[in-house]
């Protein structure tokens, strides 16, 4: 329903209605053609369509080009340390169930320096949207090899070509116990990008989205033919997956029927190398959530707290021996 709201809607709106403007701030300083732009507007649209109050929404990031993201959101934001978006995002969410959290991370940020936190954030399964801006390169520091750079990538740290096979972020995430939502999309298929982030925002747990992102400055060739040729996108189709309008669906020449409950199939599709599978690879809404644990026992009043400590102190007390 909310999907149908138009920006130019003429019906009188209640005071509390938020428009796209409420979620934006400043002018993004990303390069022209950078995938960041469409991701930003998609997130803003999702926030608007779900009518997230901006003051109840937090965008958290690490460091990198992609991690500039919170500065362009009209919500609360936290632009922290390289690799450490997840611990901060989890700390925010743990005892504030009322906040909507987006965790923004780059491929170096998530899969290299922050890889330890990535594993654990997936396992904590706190409700938030985790967006991996995967451009296969270190953007901010100007073209060093990233853990997701394809084998042989020429970079400033490997001028002769990178020597190790890349990490597959989908496969890695699928391998972490308690993973509950793994999806893939691209920055250039905006309809799918929007639908994926929307689905992620509605997921009751940690929704991990790998966004295949173009970096015209340093990886001009990486997705050149992919983005130009729709044949290279493989649409994962399912009733309970990420669904586009039939018209938009018809544009995909390669379609795979995939049930997102099937983790083994998801792992198989994650290995596809002659194209980019997009859609929901895996979802499980039943997994335990660490934020539900964090949200219990909140807001105890001072009287009860005092009582609690006093009773505890009783165990350590020696009565005055002079009375």
């Amino acid at each position: 329903m909310l999907n149908a709201t138009h920006d130019f809607c003429t019906i009188p709106m209640p005071d509390e209605h938020y428009g796209l403007n409420d979620y934006s701030k400043g002018m993004p300083r990303w390069c022209p053609g950078c995938g960041g732009h469409s991701i930003l507007t998609s997130v803003q649209r999702v926030c608007k369509d779900l009518q997230y109050p901006p003051e109840k929404t937090v965008a958290v990031s690490g460091i990198g080009c992609s991690s500039r993201f919170p500065h362009y959101m009209g919500t609360y934001g936290f632009h922290g340390l390289h690799g450490r978006a997840f611990p901060v995002a989890c700390g925010i969410k743990f005892r504030r169930p009322d906040l909507n959290v987006f965790a923004i991370t780059g491929d170096g940020d998530c899969c290299s320096i922050g890889a330890g936190h990535w594993v654990h954030a997936v396992r904590y399964n706190m409700k938030m949207v985790a967006l991996l801006f995967d451009n296969g390169i270190y953007g901010l520091t100007k073209k060093q090899t990233s853990p997701t750079s394809p084998l042989g990538t020429h970079s400033n740290t490997h001028p002769e070509g990178s020597i190790l096979p890349p990490i597959n972020p989908l496969q890695t995430t699928l391998g972490i116990s308690n993973a509950s939502f793994v999806a893939q999309t691209t920055d250039w298929n905006v309809a799918h990008l929007y639908a994926t982030i929307r689905k992620a925002a509605e997921h009751p747990g940690f929704a991990f989205v790998r966004i295949v992102q173009r970096c015209p400055a340093f990886m001009r060739d990486l997705y050149a033919d992919l983005s130009g040729n729709p044949e290279n996108l493989i649409y994962l189709k399912s009733e309970n997956g990420i669904n586009l309008e039939p018209n938009a669906q018809r544009k995909f020449e390669r379609v795979i029927e995939h049930n997102p409950l099937n983790i083994n199939k998801a792992r198989e599709h994650a290995e596809i190398s002659d194209g980019i599978p997009i859609g929901l690879l895996y979802q499980n809404t039943e997994n335990p959530r660490y934020d539900t644990y964090g949200a219990h026992n909140l807001g105890m009043n001072a009287t009860d707290k005092k009582q609690g400590i006093r009773e505890l102190l009783d165990h350590y007390t020696i009565k005055n021996n002079n009375s």
Binding site: V60, F78, G80, L81, R84, F86, P87, V88, A89, C90, G91, I92, K93, F94, R95, G116, H117, V119, H120, Y293, G294, H296, N297, L298, G299, M300, D304, K305, G308, I309
Partner: peptide
């Protein structure tokens, strides 16, 4: 007293979590 412990994956995360 309405408190809770979080055993983080390492001290960096413990600190980041507290900061968050």
């Amino acid at each position: 007293v309405g408190g809770i412990i979080h055993q983080a994956e390492d001290e960096i995360a413990a600190m980041g979590f507290a900061i968050g």
